[in-house]
Simulated assay, not measured.
Amino acid sequence: MVKDAVTPFHHDGHPVLTLRQLDRLNNVPKGTAFRAFKRARANLVEGRDFFVLDPERDAGRIAELKAAGLAYDSSHRVVLLTAAAYEVMRGAR
């Protein structure tokens, strides 16, 4: 899937990172990227800036991301973020 824990992978034709990958990339505690995502959410468009994997619809993909260490084991839904979303999140500090 990916070479390491902070390498983007493709979803729906877009290079993306998970919230866990962003926490690792920025060397911050678990949940930091999620809180930034929540602050920036009103300025992001689902399907363009981010994608949400649903546990019923995307169970296999979520399991794959968890097994690869790219999503937190406690996550039910997994948020995938594009570079554009990451830039908006960085500005929403």
Rank of each mutant, 00 (worst) to 15 (best):
M1Q: 14
V6C: 04
V6K: 07
T7I: 00
P8V: 00
P8S: 07
F9Q: 07
F9A: 11
D12C: 05
P15R: 12
L17W: 15
T18V: 05
T18I: 06
L19S: 10
L19H: 10
L22E: 02
L22F: 10
D23Q: 05
D23S: 11
L25A: 07
N27K: 09
K30H: 14
G31P: 08
T32L: 05
A33W: 06
A33N: 01
A33F: 10
A33T: 02
R35N: 13
R35P: 02
A36G: 01
K38I: 12
K38H: 07
R39L: 15
N43A: 06
L44V: 13
L44Q: 05
V45C: 05
R48C: 07
R48K: 13
D49R: 03
F51M: 14
V52Y: 06
R57G: 03
R57I: 14
A59K: 02
G60F: 15
G60Q: 15
I62K: 07
A63Q: 12
L65R: 04
L65F: 14
K66H: 11
K66F: 06
K66Y: 08
S75E: 13
S75F: 06
S75H: 11
R77M: 10
V78M: 09
V78I: 11
V79M: 11
L81A: 01
L81V: 05
L81M: 12
A83S: 12
A84F: 00
A85Y: 04
A85W: 09
Y86G: 00
E87M: 09
V88D: 01
V88I: 13
V88M: 03
V88Y: 01
R90T: 10
A92W: 00
